[in-house]
């Protein structure tokens, strides 16, 4: 079965390689957005799916990443290749400080504290005119000449996102990844076997933030400009939506969610301004009638689940 899933992932990757050659520029831009937001969503799911905590401030790290790359490129002329790792480092550093407090809480309190911190980051970027440009945002983030085109930037994003996703997959399949699942399923018992759960949770939080920072870094040169709204709480909702639509139990769930969400948005906004209404209805239907998202459906129809009561994200291990 694992071979079968690997074949599907290979097929999806091949499609990602070939598809842009047959579509116009608009859809290439949409595909690039799918990749970047997909990376953002997969990084979010490291906290949600694997650690079992709902972060409602994940956009803060995405925004910090976007501003790191944007400011370095525009104000210091640092090349993109160096700005992206810098984005990961700054996002990770911010997450180290904020995460130190966040991981002490769980459930609703974790969600609200991440949200409060996220809003704090948003207001700092929003108000700090001299440095970030405040609500004017930051314009003129140009990718290097070699990547200055919809297609070339798409393939660059594909390369970076694929590498990042493979890294996250390796992490999720490592002993560290299984320790996270143990913490999610029973923190007390995990602590009892001698694991410093707080340390593990903090590391996971920081790593997830670093990949969110990388996604944010990719966004600036793609969009040519960034605005503080990138770290507002609405933006934090985006990976949550994608993950719920795609399914948090599979490693690939958030990516599937990103494909559905972003395509739907590109399609719907083409003929109506009522995108929030549309996505609101979609989310409502998914929550009510399709718990587990698309991945949950796939699992129900392809695999004979080991047991009904099996904790869901165990199957996350088989996700590729």
């Amino acid at each position: 079965m694992s071979v079968k899933k690997l074949a599907w992932v290979g097929l999806a990757f091949a499609a990602a390689l070939v598809l842009p050659m047959f579509v116009g520029e608009f859809w290439v831009l949409v595909l690039t957005e799918i990749l970047i937001l997909g990376l953002f969503a997969v990084s979010f799911n490291m906290i949600f799916g694997y650690m079992g905590q709902l972060s409602f401030g994940h956009a803060a790290f995405y925004g910090v990443g976007a501003y790191t790359t944007g400011l370095l490129m525009v104000k210091a002329g640092v090349p993109l290749g160096l700005s992206l790792p810098a984005s990961m480092i700054t996002a990770g550093a911010v997450a180290l400080v904020l995460g130190y407090f966040c991981i002490r809480l769980t459930g609703i309190y974790f969600a609200i504290l991440t949200m409060a911190f996220g809003q704090l980051i948003f207001y700092i970027i929003f108000q700090w005119y001299s440095f970030t440009g405040g609500d004017n945002g930051l314009q003129g983030i140009k990718p290097p000449a070699m990547l200055d085109g919809a297609w070339s930037y798409y393939y660059f994003a594909l390369l970076v996102v694929t590498a990042a996703v493979i890294m996250m997959w390796i992490i999720s399949e490592s002993p560290f990844g299984y320790t996270m699942r143990a913490i999610r399923d029973n923190t007390q018992r995990t602590r009892f076997v001698g694991i410093n759960t707080k340390k593990y949770m903090l590391i996971n939080f920081v790593v997830a933030a670093m990949f969110a920072g990388l996604a944010g870094g990719l966004w600036g040169p793609f969009n040519r400009s960034i605005a503080p709204d990138l770290c507002n709480w609405h933006q934090s909702g985006v990976p949550v939506f994608m993950t719920i639509i795609g399914g948090p139990t599979g490693f690939m769930g958030p990516l599937i969610g990103s494909v559905i969400y972003t395509f739907l948005m590109a399609f719907v906004t083409g003929f109506t301004e009522y995108w929030p209404l549309t996505i609101g209805i979609v989310i409502t239907l998914v929550v009510l009638f399709m718990p587990g998202g698309v991945w949950g459906l796939v699992e129900r129809y392809t695999a004979a689940l080991p047991a009904r009561g099996e904790p869901p994200a165990d199957s996350g291990g088989e996700a590729s």
Partner: peptide
Amino acid sequence: LLLTYALVLI
């Protein structure tokens, strides 16, 4: 949480 958030949008 998601359901009530969807309600905000709707």
